[in-house]
Computed example of a mutant assay.
Amino acid sequence: MATGANRAQDKLTPRLAQPRVPPLEPHQWDPAVGELLTRGRPPEFGDGDQPVFNVFKTLAHYPAAMRRLAPWGNHVLFKSSLPPREREMVILRAGWLARAEYEFAHHVEIALEQAGLSDADIAAIKTGPETPGLSPEDSDLLRAVDDLVANAFISDPLWGRLAERFTIQQLMDLIFAVGHYTMMSMVLNTLGVQLERMESGSRTNAR
């Protein structure tokens, strides 16, 4: 697997120019999907009349899986025991390593507006744990993501340093976040989920 160092100047682009699985519009949704995406949506996604993202319109093809996946995704994103800043660093690094334009773009927005990250933080997430000037704590966090993605494992020395900062639940949520968003990046990349028109090119590559 390529490391962050030789990806530093990369810009993410869609893996596919067109979706392999087209997003379903509201009139095509299963009733249970409609309930989930409007009345049952997490408050963090806004009111039920807000636009629905393409990732959810695509998952609407598989209502049973979507109903089961939604509570877990809600935990990883909104109920995680990790502080928001660390959670978004983990998610963004996983998305960057997966070359997932859609995932990375959406979470840059969350990171900057809700989690207190800066443009410099986003740049460091792209270049990885060896970024000059990165704090040891942030370097360890990014290195944990790299290790999990490359080896499905965190080494004993790194685990020991992380365990001095995080609780057992937070460490588990770190692993959960990498696993979940790596899986979602696979889904997004392979199904060809396209970044919404208003966002295209504005968040993934501008920072």
Rank of each mutant, 00 (worst) to 15 (best):
D121E: 08
P14W: 04
T38K: 12
R207Q: 13
M66N: 09
M89T: 03
L59D: 04
S80Q: 00
P51L: 05
S139H: 07
P71D: 08
L117F: 06
L16F: 07
L195W: 13
F166Q: 07
E164V: 03
L36R: 12
P26Y: 06
V178Y: 05
L148S: 05
N74Y: 04
D156M: 03
T190A: 14
D47N: 04
V21H: 09
D138M: 06
I110P: 05
A206M: 10
A100P: 05
A152H: 13
P83M: 01
L142P: 11
E86A: 09
P132Q: 05
L16C: 02
N74A: 14
T3D: 10
A94K: 01
A70F: 11
R15P: 06
L195I: 14
F45D: 06
A115C: 11
E35L: 10
H107C: 12
K79R: 15
N54A: 12
I175Y: 03
E101H: 00
D47K: 03
S185E: 09
L117Q: 11
S202K: 15
S200A: 15
F176P: 01
V55E: 09
M198N: 12
A32C: 06
L97C: 08
F53T: 10
R87K: 14
I168K: 15
S139K: 02
A100L: 01
A32M: 00
T13H: 11
L158A: 05
T3F: 09
S200P: 00
N6P: 00
A144P: 06
T13L: 13
L195V: 14
R67G: 10
D49E: 12
K126P: 00
D10E: 15
D138Y: 02
G128N: 03
R41L: 06
T38C: 06
R197K: 15
L92P: 02
L59W: 12
Y181K: 02
S155D: 15
A94N: 03
M183G: 08
V33L: 07
